[in-house]
């Protein structure tokens, strides 16, 4: 429609009717209206409460906030408590186990789905579904499944294998691994989705070139495809690690931190100090330390992401 376009372009902007001008103005304003209020609210929310918690952590607050200064006393007593030490060593076991198992499962699923299978969308949805379930539900379901009296052990014994034992949930040594299993069950679909997106973004000609170069499927993945999605590995590891550090409701519902302190995690300690024992100051100190461990994971990642971006900009 060259004629129509020319006619519109020919109209001087001032002669436009007022409503059109209004609409243009509104159109430019809309993104700001949509973006800024939520951003301001969440920044105020997050930043102000983080600052408030940090402040409380330096006060002798117990059940209610008090505003005297006690320095790092809360930190010292939290760090020296057995509860905190156990929680942190549990976090290390759980964090490593969860991240490694989830990454491995997610990658395996992604590679399997990448084989141009039938009903790919269906499988993708099925594997992603656990992510849509709340951690409390996951924890509760797995608590039933892993319960020796009613779950998997009971089922297998019912098949006739009377000596079968699978009682990790009530085993002090193994209970932490039940959290790993439930967590990996929930998150591996998410890791799969990220890996699959990465694998699919690899130039199809690279597969072809590798095939012609004589590489089998295993070698193509190991030497060509997976190195190409290195950045996705790092993103998955970081996202999963901060999942692990923040894990709370899953453990609450699955083991409640037990048996004993066997599955105690730092988040549960924070909850316990703040809301069960009424030690706000110490709870806040524990929360701040948790935040710091998150930053230890995230800051290097952001630095890495920035470095990568700059390097890409340089190489074009």
């Amino acid at each position: 429609m060259p004629a129509g376009t020319a006619a519109v372009a020919g109209v001087p902007p001032l002669a436009r009717p007022a409503p059109a001008r209004w609409r243009g103005w509104l159109g430019r304003l809309a993104p700001h209206l949509v973006l800024w209020p939520p951003l301001l609210v969440s920044v105020l929310h997050v930043v102000s409460f983080t600052a408030y918690t940090t402040w409380i952590s330096f006060t002798p607050s117990t059940l209610l906030p008090e505003y005297d200064w006690v320095g790092v006393q809360n930190y010292v007593s939290v760090l020296n408590s057995r509860n905190w030490k156990i929680a942190y060593s549990n976090l290390v076991i759980y964090g490593c186990g969860f991240v490694l198992l989830t990454t491995a499962l997610g990658l395996l699923l992604a590679v399997l789905i990448d084989q141009r299978i039938r009903a790919e969308n269906l499988f993708r949805t099925i594997f992603l579904y656990p992510m849509a379930v709340s951690f409390v539900v996951t924890g509760t379901v797995w608590a039933w499944l892993l319960n020796p009296g009613i779950g998997i052990q009971h089922l297998v014994r019912g098949f006739g294998w009377a000596g079968f034992r699978f009682d990790w949930l009530v085993d002090r040594e193994m209970a932490i691994y039940t959290i790993v299993i439930a967590g990996a069950w929930q998150a591996s679909g998410f890791a799969m989705a990220l890996f699959l997106a990465g694998i699919r973004s690899v130039d199809a000609d690279l597969y072809r070139a590798a095939q012609i170069d004589g590489a089998g499927p295993w070698r193509i993945y190991r030497r060509v495809v997976l190195p190409c999605i290195g950045p996705i590995f790092i993103a998955v590891l970081v996202i999963l690690l901060q999942f692990a550090i923040k894990t709370f409701d899953l453990v609450r519902a699955l083991t409640g931190g037990g048996p004993g302190l066997a599955t105690q995690l730092p988040t549960l300690v924070v909850y316990d100090l703040m809301f069960q024992r009424g030690l706000l100051g110490r709870g806040a100190a524990a929360a701040v330390m948790l935040l710091l461990s998150l930053l230890v994971v995230l800051l290097p990642y952001f630095a890495y992401a920035r470095w990568r971006k700059r390097r890409e900009a340089r190489h074009g």
């Binding site: 130039d203 070139a209 095939q211 012609i212 590489a215 089998g216 030497r223 190195p227 190409c228 290195g230």
Partner: peptide, 19 residues
């Protein structure tokens, strides 16, 4: 393809970016 004993040059070059 790997057993056909052929070599191919692609339009996109298809060089392995990480190597």
């Amino acid at each position: 393809p790997k057993d056909r004993d052929i070599a191919m040059v692609f339009q996109s070059y298809a060089l392995y970016p990480t190597m």
